[in-house]
Design a protein around this nucleic acid. Structure first.
Ligand SMILES: [Mn+2]
Ligand SMILES: [Mn+2]
Ligand SMILES: [Mn+2]
Ligand SMILES: [Mn+2]
Lengths: 225, 225
DNA sequence: ACTAGAATTTAGACATTCCTAATCATTCAA
DNA sequence: TTGAATGATTAGGAATGTCTAAATTCTAGT
């Protein structure tokens, strides 16, 4: 009754898709996992045997409580590792994901605990994502997407959502990282770019980029009428 | 043409047995790998296709140059990881092996390099075993087994050879670790225990234990007649 | 309500790595 | 020199995780 690495990856992916879509379809899962649809169907049957998902033919899957716990355990490993690689081994934030993706399945609980303590019991990873607790609790934040802010709005970047290393490098070079204070100067119409202020500099950001950035808004001054 | 984790483990084990025995028999390999003999035979055929071993039916195997390089690469990962776990995460020397055994197959060359530098380009692991260089060079030391020393002999412990966590804990608690200075006080006959001096204390060690300890002898005083 | 097209599942296959049972080769001792 | 014991290989099969091709089910548009 061992949870294999493949099973862990499916559970982790189902967790992510379920957050986004509710019930998870076989095809969306297959695409997210980069496998053919029948592979996903086959794995669903296996995950049912392990009581980690509820699955109805042609109707998609959702995680059981057990499945969610396993997913969160793997996500905890992943995010602790990302932070450890960045903080203790000097990895850049665009390089941590790939390495953590393989390590997450092989570290022991002892390793997890030592890293957790070495990092000072952190709660967020280098991209600002919350780190699940040992008990599998995960704070749900609902920050605004930078793409939804209007000119004049300002706040603090809280998360830069999973994106390509290239995009992360681009954003990082411009100071668009968690905890940076940001202000929207302008927002061009027709899905045009946002002009934003970060620190001393100003940047034009396409909507695709802006959508990946989550901001905790500061209440706007002079809006209290 | 990917070298799988199973292949890496076989190559590593063949390397170790070849150092000890020369040509490696299927059965000794199977025992060392904790698999049935047919599994070892099957893997030999596969390793031949990858040109990592030379194998003649009923005659055993030896590594090719390629096979040896791969084995040393994995051993480098293993020993760097053992040292890193001990030095940077506070693992005790009896716990590092198990964790390194799984991590060694999944770390990147980048991770290897960063750990190597973080540790100050080390040359020996927590058990005193030499760490192969990036290029796959490995110094061959020929230290004496503590079991072979005679009363009066003294020297420095250089290696404590692969043994059980229990044994390592026992030896560690008594200061019998690499770089410790040791002197043989007495050696009981009939395969009896050795009485040794380490630091300020004296211990009686059975031959089985003593065989695992490798010592660099100091030339004995007053032996120059 | 039908039906075409999309989504999903089933069928069958392959690569890995391991196993047990049976067969074959080697070796050593009489 | 021969045959029994030991060691090694072959034969056949299971589990895992993937694939393509074919069949099935669902869903929307008419
Ligand atoms: Mn854990
Ligand atoms: Mn992350
Ligand atoms: Mn390496
Ligand atoms: Mn070691």
């Amino acid at each position: 009754m061992k949870i294999t690495e493949a099973m862990q990856n499916y559970l982790k992916t189902i967790y992510r898709l379920q957050e986004r879509d509710g019930v998870v379809s076989t095809s969306s899962l297959a695409i997210a996992m980069s496998v053919a649809a029948p592979s996903a169907t086959g794995m669903m049957k296996k995950l049912v045997r392990y009581r980690t998902v509820r699955y109805t033919r042609y109707q998609g899957v959702v995680l059981t409580k057990t499945g969610r716990q396993i997913a969160l355990e793997v996500i905890r490993h992943h995010r602790l590792l990302e932070l450890y690689l960045a903080a203790s081994l000097g990895y850049s934030w665009d390089a941590v994901h790939e390495e953590a993706e393989r390590l997450e399945h092989v570290i022991s609980e002892d390793f997890e605990e030592r890293v957790f303590e070495a990092l000072g019991r952190p709660t967020r990873d280098p991209h600002g994502e919350p780190i699940p607790t040992r008990e599998g609790a995960l704070p749900v934040w609902n920050h605004d997407s930078l793409a939804d802010l209007e000119p004049g709005a300002s706040g603090t970047i809280r998360q830069v959502r999973d994106s390509s290393p290239d995009m992360l490098r681009y954003l990082g070079a411009r100071g668009l990282v968690p905890d940076a204070v940001i202000r929207v100067v302008d927002k061009a119409p027709f899905n045009g770019p946002l002009t934003v202020n970060v620190g001393a500099s100003t940047h034009a950001l396409g909507r695709d980029l802006a959508r990946h950035i989550r901001v905790e808004m500061r209440p706007m001054l002079g809006e209290q009428e």
